[in-house]
Amino acid sequence: MTREEIINKVLNIFKEEFEIENPGLDDDLREVHEFDSIDAIELLREIEYFLDTELTQDEKKDAMEIRTINDICDYIMSLAKEDCGV
């Protein structure tokens, strides 16, 4: 999956699930869009559905560093690489 495809998927999740339309890719999600810890947990669930996988506790904790849409895409790409053994 390309980065562009991942970005589009994430933006769609933000539109459908979080009612946040067209956020800037480098917007601080908490500061600009009031994205909170409840939303973060829900986002992880969406990522699990998207990747059809179960995140480990450590992987979930790593996700707590996420601040932007670009961070989310980096995170998903790193998970996808792990799954491929890369």
């Binding site: 810890s37 409840i38 947990i41 829900e42 669930r45 179960e54």
Partner: peptide, 13 residues
Amino acid sequence: KTKYASIGAVDYL
């Protein structure tokens, strides 16, 4: 296990 894992903080709130 999937359904069990889907129970979250927001459900409690």
